[in-house]
Design a protein around this nucleic acid. Structure first.
Lengths: 215, 215
DNA sequence: CGTTTCCTTGGACAATTGTCAAAATTAATT
DNA sequence: AATTAATTTTGACAATTGTCCAAGGAAACG
């Protein structure tokens, strides 16, 4: 009888847990929906010029909803950053997975780089903007450092695969390699946004020259 | 008589010109005073969180003065950026001018780098912040691109002097070299501001390893 | 079906923002 | 010394901001 009671209770408990999990999942899905909408406006205007109300106005949601799902503005932005990460960090993985030769990998990588600069410029300027905010705001630092690490890993996967296909090993550390590519991308992103038509081809040319000399 | 008139007029004109020039110089000196005060607050809070009124409150000036000397907020920030450039761009020049050997130059450069990271972190985070703003705001782009170019030149002066002292030439272009050092500095600046005690020594170690392998 | 919980709306609120202008003060000129 | 010009102060202004809340509606549940 006592065990029956216990079993019944724990069954109830299990059901409640599942229900709770579903609720939380739904809650989280909505958060991501909202974060996605926020990212569009943030990418267009940048962190400094974006207010919660303008995010709401440029989306299908009211500003009240954002306050219901996020404690405050920082909470929203943090969620945006985290969500952005997931989309960004595996961007080049299929390139290095499918490439069968050094040339193919270099070709695929630089093509993808060009595509990124052309099509996702506003998402990447937002990334640089938010990373700069992390220099001032503690709350961003953890997420930003984590994303930076993930990007470093991604670049390293490309580079070490490229070296492997040539029977070599990269001559620099993952950190240095990431700093180099990050610095380059940032530079050509600025030029591209300043309507320099040579930005994309120059970046591609630079990478094509650089990668074989490093890996 | 006619020539006398003309001579008199042009003398008057010259005096007026000098007076006008003095007035403008004074006006400009005041602008720089104000920009200097603004830079302190901007470096502390970052672009997004800094308002004209807070700049004024944290300085000895009233907010009205800023409006008297600057057309608007953008004008003030642009003046700040330009003024910042002049202070920053010659930072490492005496190092490469006085160094008599490769080792001395490398030593001096990495020491100066460490000092910069330690003492001027907030000015440099402001630089990265403003450069990110240039990704969104046209008005900043010209100045930012110009400063970027000046910094690239500065890095190149160091590197080519270092190579020269070893009878070599750098193996990468000025642009790539700047991208590398810029990316590295940005990275370790973030770590340093996140209270990572290894940030400064790690940056120094990285540069000491890197520079001889490139130049 | 009724009730309770969850979600959404839209407005109210105080605080802050950039901008401007009319006085007050100071410096320059005659 | 008197007048003119330049500089600074101070307060007002409308617009925008993040935050909070009360009411209504939808959905889940017994």
């Amino acid at each position: 009888m006592a065990t029956g009671m216990v079993r019944q209770m724990s069954a109830k408990q299990r059901v409640a847990d599942v229900v709770e999990a579903l609720r939380e999942e739904k809650f989280n899905a909505r958060r991501i929906e909202l974060a996605e909408a926020a990212l569009a406006t943030l990418g267009e205007l940048g962190y400094a010029r974006t207010s919660l109300r303008e995010i709401a106005q440029k989306s299908e949601f009211t500003h009240g909803v954002f306050h219901y799902y996020f404690a405050d503005k920082l909470d929203l932005i943090c969620c945006c950053v985290r969500h952005y990460k997931a989309k960004c960090v595996t961007r080049y993985d299929d390139v290095s997975a499918t490439a069968r030769s050094r040339d193919e990998l270099l070709e695929g990588f630089s093509a993808k780089l060009a595509e990124t600069l052309r099509d996702d410029a506003s998402m990447h300027r937002l990334w640089y903007d938010l990373r700069s905010q992390a220099l001032f705001e503690d709350a961003f630092r953890g997420d930003v450092l984590e994303i930076d690490q993930s990007l470093e890993n991604m670049v390293w996967r490309i580079a070490s695969r490229y070296a492997e296909l040539g029977g070599k090993t990269p001559v620099v550390s993952p950190g240095v390699l990431y700093a180099l590519f990050d610095g380059l991308f940032q530079r050509y992103l600025l030029k591209h946004l300043a309507d320099d038509p040579r930005a994309i081809p120059d970046l591609v040319a630079e990478v094509r020259r650089l990668l074989p000399s490093i890996c």
